[in-house]
Amino acid sequence: MSEEELNKEPLTRAQFLWLGSLGSVMAAVLTIPPVVYLLSPSIKHQFGGRSDVPDGWVELGSVFEVPGGEPKVYRVEFPQDQTYDYEPDEGEIVEAVMVTWKDGQVPSVLGGGRRTLSPAETEELSHDLNVKSNACAHLGCPVRWFPDRHQFLCPCHGGIYDINGRVVGGPPPKNLWSYVFEVREDGAIYVKHEFIGGEPWVV
């Protein structure tokens, strides 16, 4: 082999750039569609703000039926779009919502029995009401009320919460998740599938 041949560049800079660009384009064409395809729910949620549960109020029950000293547990069916049906909102996600009064004390406003509430009264009742998810703030297991202990206990890893949903023991890093809710003038409690201060996954 001659010296000239040995010194010859096996690949010119232009060829290198051309091959590199072509390779990058081909790699992008081959990888981006499947990755985006797999991540589409995440992309829709993170960038588009889309939720599986459409924005809207669902009725729970009435403030007049929430007892003092223990929770009233409601089974709520939220419409869910995470199905492959043609009709929107055909699916549903069932959740348990636990409603208690602050420190278990029934507000004096409710003394007069069932009646139409004034705006000031609904605001006061909203302030005194805890509307909590039963999903433990640690790893999402369903918590349960133990009347003898007067606490919510998680069966998975021993999370303990008081009647207000405040964590008092075990591994949970925060209190039970609170639903966005409102009390209407007829005393009805309405909730949204939204949570104050974040999103508890999997609920």
Partner: peptide, 30 residues
């Protein structure tokens, strides 16, 4: 659910991991 919750605690990509595994932001058919 516990597994997904653990995944959601991953730094930076936690939300992505959860929504990827759930196929949305709630547990369901997906």
């Amino acid at each position: 659910e516990v597994g997904i919750k653990i995944g959601s605690y991953s730094p930076v990509v936690g939300d992505w991991v959860s929504t990827f595994l759930l196929g949305g932001d709630t547990a369901g058919p997906a």
